[in-house]
């Protein structure tokens, strides 16, 4: 598993209950739900590190890191 800027804590993520908040608010549409696991994940490493996904997540499962190239 490669390291991507948006990390999802699968213990906290409630995507299996139908939550798609982080996926919805991303301006670049780079997050998705893994249907098998029922968890959100970063599908495309195309991040503006803008943070709506982290801020709007109802359970605090999402963390945005600064992409490695900028760090």
């Amino acid at each position: 598993m490669t390291s991507v800027p948006v990390r999802v804590n699968e213990d906290l993520c409630i995507a299996e209950k139908g939550c798609t908040v982080c996926v919805d608010v991303c301006p670049l549409d780079v997050l998705a739900i893994d249907i098998v696991k029922g968890k959100a994940f970063m599908k495309f490493d195309e991040c503006w590190y803008c943070m709506p996904c982290e801020k709007d997540c109802p359970t605090g499962a999402v963390t945005v890191d600064i992409p490695y190239l900028l760090r």
């Binding site: 301006p27 670049l28 195309e46 991040c47 503006w48 803008c50 992409p67 190239l69 900028l70």
Partner: peptide, 10 residues
């Protein structure tokens, strides 16, 4: 980084 722009890269 292609998306590390000042403006929203969308």
């Amino acid at each position: 980084y292609l998306f590390g722009t000042y403006e929203n890269p969308t």
